[in-house]
Design a protein around this nucleic acid. Structure first.
Length: 644
RNA sequence: GCUCAUAUAGCUCAGCGGUAGAGCACUUGCUUGGUAAGUAAGAGGUCACCGGUUCAAGUCCGGUUAUGAGCUCCA
């Protein structure tokens, strides 16, 4: 038979040859490092027979595919077997690979906690040491069911019986059939290819990802080619932990949380400085882009939420207020607003709008509350009380495209100013359950898509992921360590204006419903500040830093000069503090450095005598002595580097 | 909401049945020192909350609340 290799060369092999035969035919080195093959684009086991003419590539252990096959074998064969050895009554569910590693879901009679991982890892190492070969048997559906019934593996039985596949269920055996698992494969030919690995965490996970199902124990691990790669991975994890905004928030005295208000931020003066600066930055941008800032009530009667449809759909997640009846004239049920859009429609509805007035762009720093499930809260990233940089654009359908374009240009300007040069766009199209005619959807989807295309921006389409009321664009930015955060959103809505009777008088003299576009750039201030802290490891750019300059005196006789500089800087709007404590300069430098103050000015006798300052910047050990006048100008210029 | 874990001084943590500990921070004294921790002393805790076991409970058991890692969810 004729085998085509990836470089388009051919090789003739006897019928019935396996991948391994092919690798051997090409060279002994390749045969040694081969772990699987790809036949006509489908991954197969190394010892599978190649059926007739085909294009085949050999997967070696050094390739990315090889690494993932190794991770797969490690979880499905080694971890699963270790669990069965240590917890014979446990039942195996599934064990897939994930980014950087793998997990296995099991049901156990005894709970497995983080302290048990070492024991399991040791058992895995014992199994790997056997270098066992892995062999495969193809069996019929009924035989496969029999095997796992006798092994008391109900989850495997369920997988088999729910499968559309009729035959050829793959059973992988280790050793002398001492361990068997159902798997789509492929697997390593034997365990000698297993590299370096570590079990990392244990948690719960629902069977088939459905919260109605049993909670299984999920054991996570990471695996790499060698110790060096494993070390590298563990180091990057450590790096991410170091920039955790919850830890930095404490160290930099930015905010705190406490039991009495779970998921609500107590902003401290320094944290609030960041918030205020970010807000005024956004406000200036919105003003320049013809948004009209408004402010709407936080507590609103349920009637409005019923009209908007939120009461039906999201009541469980709303904070409902109860009025003490004695003091209330009538019993009313109110809700803290979970979003601003219904209120914005109320503002729009005051008076009569002409088509000539459109588009109308309302913006609000809208304080919202949502009762998030207790387990979902996470520092500033997921909270119950938050503020959106929200906005709603009321326009005619034919204005969607130009609104999309101007929104994206504003968004990319803001992201870039905040230090995020890279973001991805996701276009989500009509879902199965939706309102509005296909004709309107066609128009809306193509308006969004055309706008991105005209701006020549790359985007990805997420079929069927749109909201029930219209298509949307999501904007995902990438941070300094490559993590992605979905922040901006732009959603066309054909539903709410209708429900809440928003209208305009068209050119034809008749009433029409405008399209309402929900849009946000940061998403929520709380979360975005969390992202900023992690992106910069707390070392925020000068203009955003909570304390911008600390003037530290070296000897007390220069305190008056330090205070004078502080006054001059404050006049220029620089957030400046003095440190006149009776401490050594190195002590002061250490403290303010660990608080990530961008500029520390050390002031001693020389500086006072010469009207100079010594500047030390965060992240650098160098100091620079310059004239006070020059320093003031420099700092003022640096502070206004972002067009506010 | 679910699973598992955690909750001790302002912070980071040790103690795991028998009189509450350390480092840093804080206060006071000495020290005025040139770029990441001067020095000595002092003060500081109903060991998250409620209940149980025990002669005796931060310590063991149950519940509640919060937090963490995931899962589910995110208008």
């Amino acid at each position: 038979m004729k085998i085509t290799l990836p470089d388009n060369s051919f090789r003739d092999l006897p019928d019935g040859s396996s991948g391994y035969d092919l690798a051997k035919d090409i060279g002994p080195g390749l045969a040694k490092s081969a772990v699987a093959i790809t036949v006509n684009g489908v991954q197969k086991d190394l010892h599978d027979k190649i059926e007739g003419d085909a294009s085949v590539s050999i997967i070696t252990i050094d390739s990315d595919d090889g690494l993932n096959i190794m991770r797969h074998t490690l979880t499905a064969q080694v971890l699963a077997r270790a669990i069965k050895n240590l917890y014979p009554k446990s039942q195996l569910a599934i064990g897939p690979i994930i980014e950087d590693g793998f997990y296995y879901d099991v049901e156990t009679d005894k709970t497995i906690s983080i302290d048990d991982l070492q024991k399991i890892e040791d058992e895995m190492k014992n199994i790997v040491k056997t270098n066992s070969s892995i062999t495969k048997k193809l069996v019929s559906k009924s035989d496969a069911l029999k095997v796992f019934k006798s092994l008391k593996e109900p989850y495997k039985e369920e997988i088999i019986s729910e499968s559309d596949q009729k035959d050829d269920f793959q059973l992988y055996y280790q050793d002398k059939e001492e361990f068997v698992d159902l798997c789509r494969g492929p697997h390593l030919p034997n365990l000698s290819f297993i590299g370096s690995f570590k079990l990392t965490k244990v948690s719960g996970a629902y069977w088939k990802g459905d919260s109605k199902n049993t909670m299984l124990t999920r054991i996570y691990g990471t695996a790499w080619k060698n110790d060096k790669d494993l070390e590298k991975y563990l180091n990057t994890i450590e790096e991410a932990v170091k920039r955790d905004h919850r830890k930095l928030g404490k160290e930099m005295d930015l905010f705190h949380f406490q039991d009495e208000a779970p998921g609500m931020v107590f902003w401290h003066p320094y944290g609030w400085n960041i918030y205020k600066t970010l807000q005024s930055f956004i406000r200036t941008k919105l003003d320049k882009n013809d948004y009209l800032e408004i402010n709407t009530p936080q507590v609103v009667d349920r009637k409005l939420w019923e009209a908007s449809g939120h009461w039906d759909k999201y009541r469980e997640n709303m904070f409902i207020t109860e009025i003490d009846e004695e003091h209330a004239n009538e019993k009313r049920v109110n809700a803290l607003k979970p979003m601003n859009c219904p209120c914005h429609v109320q503002v729009y509805n005051q008076g009569i709008t002409s088509y000539k007035d459109l588009p109308i762009r309302y913006a609000e720093f809208g304080s919202c509350h949502r009762y998030e499930a207790s387990g979902t809260m996470h520092g500033l990233m997921r909270v119950r009380g938050f503020t959106q940089d929200d906005g709603h654009i009321f326009c005619m359908p034919e204005q969607i495209e130009s609104e999309t374009a101007s929104f994206i240009s504003l968004l990319s300007e803001i992201y870039s100013d905040l230090g995020f040069e890279k973001f991805n766009i996701k276009l989500s199209t009509r879902p199965e359950v939706r309102i509005g005619s296909d004709e309107v959807w066609d128009k809306a989807e193509s308006a969004l898509e055309n706008a991105i295309k005209k701006l020549d921006l790359p985007y990805k389409i997420d079929e069927g992921d749109g909201a029930f009321y219209g298509p949307k664009l999501d904007f995902v930015l990438t941070d300094a360590i490559g993590r992605e955060w979905q922040c901006g959103t732009f959603q066309a809505d054909f539903n709410l204006p209708d429900r809440l009777d928003a209208e305009y008088i068209g050119e034809d003299g008749n009433k029409h419903h405008p399209v309402m576009i929900h849009r946000a750039i940061l998403g929520s201030f709380e979360r975005f500040i969390g992202i900023l802290i992690e992106n910069y490891s707390g070392k925020l750019p000068f203009w955003l830093a909570p304390q911008q300059v600390v003037i530290a005196s070296i000897v007390s006789e220069v305190n008056d000069y330090a205070l004078k500089i502080q006054t001059l800087l404050k006049e220029k709007g620089i957030r400046t503090e003095v440190d006149l404590r009776n401490e050594k300069i190195s002590y002061k430098v250490r403290e303010h450095s660990s608080r990530k103050v961008p500029i520390i000015m050390a002031i001693g006798k020389n500086e006072k005598a010469n009207e100079t300052v010594s500047i030390r910047r965060i992240g650098s050990k160098d100091t620079e002595v310059i004239d006070l006048d020059k320093a003031l100008k420099l700092i003022e210029k640096e502070n206004s580097s972002i067009s506010q």
